[in-house]
Design a protein around this nucleic acid. Structure first.
Lengths: 120, 120
DNA sequence: CTGTGAGTTGGAGCGCGCTCCAAGTCAAGC
DNA sequence: GCTTGACTTGGAGCGCGCTCCAACTCACAG
């Protein structure tokens, strides 16, 4: 699988994929074909897809690197990795609650405009 | 009300309050006391509190400026302001759904670790 | 052989949202 | 009068997450 294909499948750009690799977010750099081009496996793509979800839910690059570092250290870190993901899940759920809470004032304001305009 | 008091009440720093003012996020610059210091009204503080909620829900500085510009143009823009807030609300609700969706893969991964470790 | 297109690298640049610095003013307390 | 502390300004700097540039290599089609 070429970098362009992975970009296509993950929604990241080739630029970003190379950046993630430099940033240490991959478990290991992808293999290279005879021409020096990166060759990604399906497993690489799955990993990157997970990264995109972590990113989309607000995990920082540094957070993803920590996760990748654990993954590089092998199966001894299953528990630590699970804890990292659980902590992240809790954070995201908290953030969702916070968003709902913050929206309340916005909704209140919307109602104020309704009333100001005679609820038309 | 001094800038420090507004900072205290809104959770922003004095730096940020001045930055917001320069960025055109206030309906109008606060009055000045005889010493040249900003003097905020309760209404100013309420406005800023709304800004913090808009910001917390992901509205950009430019978006907040658009809202402030409408507010400056007076009551003719009630409808436009309401629409802006409604559009924002829809965006936030969409983002919440997206977050939940993105979390699904994270939760799947957590379960994978559970199984790998014998569900202990 | 030449062009086209897809990839490679190190490093620069960018947009956002702050965050802070330097140098100054002013008021109040000792 | 002097210090302290809260404020003022214009502008510089920063951290994050990309995003792109320049210069290059390589494989393949015509």
């Amino acid at each position: 699988m070429t970098i362009a294909q992975v970009a296509e499948r993950t929604g990241l750009t080739a630029h970003t994929l190379r950046y993630y690799e430099r940033a240490g977010l991959l478990r290991e750099p992808p293999d290279r074909g005879g021409n020096g081009h990166r060759r990604y496996t399906e497993r690489d793509a799955d990993w990157i897809r997970l990264l995109t979800r972590l990113r989309a839910t607000g995990m920082s690059i540094a957070g993803m690197r920590r996760y990748a570092e654990l993954a590089r250290r092998g199966e001894d870190t299953y528990a630590a990795r699970k804890e990292l993901l659980e902590a992240h899940r809790a954070e995201v759920l908290g953030k969702i609650e916070q968003l709902k809470d913050d929206l309340a004032l916005v909704e209140y304001k919307i109602n104020v405009y309704d009333k100001l305009m005679g609820d038309s």
